[in-house]
Amino acid sequence: MSENSNRLMLEVHGLNKRFGQVHAVSNLDFEVKKGEVFGFLGPNGAGKSTTMRMITCFIPPTSGIVRVDGLDTAEHDLAVRKKIGYLPESTPLYSDMTVREYLSFAGKVRSLRGNRLKERMDAMFSVCALTKMANRQIGKLSKGYRQRVGLAQAMIHDPDLLILDEPMSGLDPNQIIEIRHLIKRIGSEKTVIYCSHILSEVSATCGRILIIKDGRVVATGTPDELTSGHRSGSQYSLRLKGDKPSLKSGLASIEGVSGVSVDDGTDGWYDVQVNTASKDDIGEALFRCAVQNNWSLSELRRDHTSLEEVFTQLTGGGK
């Protein structure tokens, strides 16, 4: 057990949170290893922020256990908070302070003093590219810079666990790429929990992902595991010219094919979709079938399930 806890940065067991009648988080179980960049994914209102608030000791759970680096949040409240750097969802900052004043304050409440404080502030200015903005008032900064100030605040004490709740919201694509690099760099040394409802973000940065819906875990794994593991077979798209009924019967007779659908295309071409029951590659068999039947073939590709599809299926998006 103790060896196990040494490897784990965060353990969440049977976590529940009720707000009156609303069951915001129910029976959440997950673990985050040290040095992992962990994606916490879910549609809006799935319970992501509530979970993060419980981990950061802002609100206590209704029931369940949260351990950060082996310390129970219920018993070692202050010790846990010292280990965590947190960027809340809307990046709340004191807008009347300058960036320098704010970071100095954030450092002081983290018990940083003197040279150590100066050292960490300088490090944050350069890591978050804030040097030019040091003496600007936070309220007058653009969203991208505010976000960086929020990140700098969360990292100033060099935390073991960094929790970022929707760090990319409101950023433009260039800023997103910058912040993504920043997170990857931090993630190479620290444990990061990254909450988002945007898949591409999470899949680009995170080693492991947990998908949550209505306060429950619906899937967990690496991005690859999620995409391949979710669907048992695979799908091929073809563009063929030939006789429609024979196309259908010919393709259906190939070993491993579980379904064929043929849509009318243009100029005698048909758009065909072939589903298989297993993950075996049947590309070659499809090609041979077309040659044997003397069909013209202009397109043949194996479709990859995207994380988006998995997400939509799991979280019932669009319903």
Binding site: F58, P88, S90, P92, S95, V109, R110
Partner: peptide, 14 residues
């Protein structure tokens, strides 16, 4: 109002 309280109360302060 500005939700800074969420940060303030997650800093290691009683």
């Amino acid at each position: 109002k500005s939700k800074t309280i969420e940060l303030l109360l997650t800093w290691p302060l009683s």
